[in-house]
Measured scan of single mutants.
Amino acid sequence: GREWTEQETLLLLEALEMYKDDWNKVSEHVGSRTQDECILHFLR
């Protein structure tokens, strides 16, 4: 997939603090990424 922007990464980190590993909520918060993309990015 395409590179994550700084904004997307910030949203991901913010969402992780709020929702922990509720990836459905996390991906909704990021908006432009799927659950799978969020998980894969997080694991890097």
Rank of each mutant, 00 (worst) to 15 (best):
E14K: 10
S32P: 03
C38K: 09
L11P: 02
W4H: 04
L13I: 11
T9L: 09
L43P: 15
S32A: 10
E3L: 10
D21M: 04
G31L: 03
G31T: 09
S32V: 07
E6V: 06
F42N: 15
V26C: 15
E8N: 02
E17W: 01
L10Y: 04
S27H: 12
E17H: 04
D22Y: 01
D36M: 04
L40I: 08
L10V: 10
Y19I: 01
W23H: 01
L40H: 14
E28L: 05
T34V: 08
W4M: 08
V26F: 09
V26P: 00
L43N: 14
G1I: 13
K25H: 09
L16N: 13
L43D: 15
V26N: 03
G1S: 12
L16Q: 15
E14Q: 09
E8S: 00
Q35G: 12
V30M: 10
Q35A: 10
H41I: 03
V30F: 12
A15M: 01
G1D: 14
S27L: 04
E28N: 06
V26L: 03
G31Q: 03
F42P: 15
S27P: 05
L10D: 15
N24D: 11
D36T: 10
E17V: 03
L40G: 11
Q7D: 05
E28H: 01
R2F: 14
Y19L: 01
E6I: 08
H41Q: 06
D22I: 01
E37C: 01
D21Y: 05
C38A: 02
A15C: 03
Q35K: 14
R33V: 04
A15I: 00
E28W: 12
R2L: 01
F42Q: 15
T9W: 02
K25D: 05
H41L: 06
L43G: 15
E17M: 01
R2K: 14
E8W: 00
L11R: 08
H41A: 12
K20H: 11
R2M: 15
R33H: 06
W23P: 03
V30D: 00
N24V: 12
E6L: 06
F42D: 09
Q7M: 15
H29W: 03
L12Q: 04
R2S: 07
E3P: 12
T34L: 06
I39K: 15
F42V: 08
T5L: 07
H29G: 00
W4D: 07
D21G: 09
E3D: 15
M18I: 06
N24A: 11
W23G: 02
S32K: 11
W23F: 07
L43E: 15
L12G: 11
L10W: 08
L10S: 13
E8F: 01
H41V: 05
W4T: 08
H41E: 07
T5Y: 08
R2E: 13
E3M: 09
L43W: 12
D22A: 03
E8V: 00
E17T: 07
L11F: 09
Q7L: 02
W4A: 06
R33F: 02
M18V: 10
L10Q: 14
L40R: 13
E3S: 15
E14I: 00
T5S: 11
V26E: 04
R33P: 02
S32E: 13
E17F: 03
K20V: 08
S27A: 13
H41C: 09
M18L: 12
H29D: 00
L10T: 14
L43Q: 15
E8T: 02
L43Y: 13
Y19P: 00
Q35R: 12
I39N: 15
L43C: 14
